[in-house]
């Protein structure tokens, strides 16, 4: 396990870091209450400009999903797989109660068990290594694997 100083988020402002209980960061419109992810300065619903950063729920339900069946093009993809080691991975939207649906990669030991409505938990963990540091990203994982 690397020290927290050697763990770099894949992008600034996506989730709280460093943290033992990281949360995704969204924004909430002061006028209409609509929540977006990632945080943004304007409101896509009412065109208001007054938004505040909020931490999002870490549990939700899978709203829809697919399985990425082929190795994505590089660039832009930076995942560690080669054509030989590539395994299909899950992608979906997780509905966070009363907030927003977040698009996410899905970490699971059993890709065949993905179902709409399953309970999912946020995880923040290593995606790749770059220049001797871990690049960390957010994922969701079926709650029964947590």
């Amino acid at each position: 396990m690397r020290s927290i100083a050697d763990q770099i988020p894949i992008a600034d402002g996506l989730f709280t870091w460093p943290s033992n209980d990281p949360r995704l960061l969204g924004s909430k419109c002061a006028d209409c209450g609509v929540v977006t992810f990632p945080a943004q300065s304007g409101c896509p619903a009412c065109c208001g400009e007054d938004t505040e950063a909020i931490e999002l729920e870490r549990k939700g339900k899978l709203w829809t999903w697919t399985i990425q069946g082929f190795l994505p093009n590089r660039p832009p993809y930076e995942g560690p797989e080669t054509p030989e080691t590539f395994k299909p991975f899950g992608v979906g939207y997780v509905e966070l109660p009363n907030q927003v649906r977040v698009e996410t990669r899905i970490q699971t030991e059993d890709i065949a068990k993905l179902r709409i409505g399953m309970e999912m938990d946020l995880v923040v963990e290593k995606f790749i290594e770059r220049d001797g540091k871990d690049i960390i990203a957010y994922f969701f994982r079926p709650a029964d694997e947590s």
Binding site: I10, A11, L14, P38, W63, T64, W65, T66, I67, Q68, P72, P75, P76, Y77, E78, G79, F89, V91, G92, Y93, E103, R105, I116, F127, A137
Partner: peptide, 22 residues
Amino acid sequence: GKWYGDIGMALTPQFFGMKIQR
């Protein structure tokens, strides 16, 4: 954000799969 492509989500076939799945 650049991260969206880095992590493997900027692919149109995923959207089509997820929309028809739902």
